[in-house]
Design a protein around this nucleic acid. Structure first.
Lengths: 232, 232
DNA sequence: AATCTTACTTGATAAAAGTCAAATAATAGT
DNA sequence: ACTATTATTTGACTTTTATCAAGTAAGATT
């Protein structure tokens, strides 16, 4: 069992304010694992034995049904995932695979639940995190049900634009195949959606996005805080 | 200010195990309100001043964007709604309107947060409830992204069938216009989807559903616990 | 029961999104 | 730099879903 670098995960909002001894309890049973790219590390419907934390690399959460598959989220350092399953002691609702080479900290779910029982500060952090996750998924549902594919793309680009500090040019963080799945469309349809945004001043060359007419894109996309602001 | 019947809400999972004095604190500031049908009682993006509890009637949670509207859930007695917004002290993500004449208990959000801070048992219940809500929305997202409209209807009918104790005949609890919106389709499309399920032994007359060939419907719908089981 | 209102259904059509096959472009190894 | 592999794009076409308009049926009101 590898010794883990506790500093990397201590800074996580989830653990930042909890008592040192309880944090020690958590990391005592923890271990770290290095995964190659494209490894399925979690499969939906299996028992949730560990709370996972991405320390390096990135992880794709996805789900399958009847031969189809859809991407639900991409997790980047330093963030936990499948907290709800861990706390509820319920099976995973999503599968997870590494997207690139990744370092993952695994905290045994029993330990997380045990500390949750005794550490009110930690419990409060869990609530905050869960409430945040819940609201993210609600936003995503609204996005899916209220907008067309092109509108979802337009608003996604605006969110990335904001994340890049408002620069005219920025990089897509996801390969297009994955982005398409995340936005709820096929790769072919994403290609066409990108073209459909050209009249609104959007140019995409490979993973490089240029927004030449911000105002026009805004007018088309009609972003709404209660859907598009991640901190809302 | 009306005196509220504390028994009605004390039985809620959220409050069942908490200390009596903390529950008293909660209901002291609470009040109850009777709403006529079709009244918008909550509007998204407004501050979440109260945790709401449906005691009688039913409430529709919905969201609007750019002239479109979609139903996100129907809340029936006795259940709370907008817990995440209350705990996070964040604006509502959804609007709410009464569907029928309804009695709603309103707990000031400040009180909920105050009790949450001091009562670990309550905090634990909040976590359980939030985790449950989160998982519900994830299931709903999977349902939306992985299935066609007809498949969503088929699985919805199977869930209602199970809820009705497995009876061959049961009633739709929602009017079709609302059901369509909830399932992410237009009313016209729902009408056609119902017809499309006839070859699989589904008959719908007004709000009465008959499932004459359960096995065939199962085979078509391919229900999955991690999408369709509400208690998963 | 008759009327009115509202909800639902149907048909015709349009728009949105998916599929398949092929071509092209990008990337990773060598 | 070259090749092999993989990702993306494009075109033609199909399926799915939405829209609009009209008709029909159900439920409410008197």
């Amino acid at each position: 069992m590898k010794r883990i670098d506790t500093q990397e995960i201590r800074s996580l909002e989830l653990f930042r304010e909890m008592a040192d001894d309880n944090f020690e309890t958590l990391v005592r049973g923890a271990y770290i694992q290095n995964f190659p790219p494209q490894i399925e590390m979690i499969t939906e419907e299996e028992p949730s034995d560990f709370l996972h934390i991405v320390v390096e690399g990135s992880v794709e959460l996805f789900s399958s049904w009847n031969g189809r598959e859809t991407a639900l989220a991409t997790i980047r350092p330093v963030s936990s995932f499948i907290l709800a399953a861990t706390i509820k002691d319920a099976p995973y609702l999503m599968s997870a695979r590494t997207h690139e080479k990744s370092r993952i900290v695994l905290l045994p779910s029993v330990d997380v639940r045990a500390v949750f029982e005794v550490d009110h500060t930690f419990a409060r952090s869990v609530v905050t995190e869960l409430a945040h996750c819940y609201r993210s998924v609600v936003k995503s549902t609204k996005n899916l049900k209220l907008r067309t594919a092109i509108e979802r793309l337009a608003n996604y680009l605006l969110r990335q634009h904001a994340r890049a500090g408002g620069a005219t040019e920025f990089e897509l963080k996801l390969e297009k195949r994955l982005l398409a799945s995340y936005l709820g469309m096929t790769p072919e349809n994403l290609s066409r959606a990108i073209k459909a945004l050209q009249p609104y001043g959007v140019y995409v060359k490979n993973s490089r996005v240029t927004i030449s007419d911000f105002d026009q894109l805004i007018e088309f996309a009609k972003p709404l805080a209660s859907i598009d602001d991640p901190n809302y």
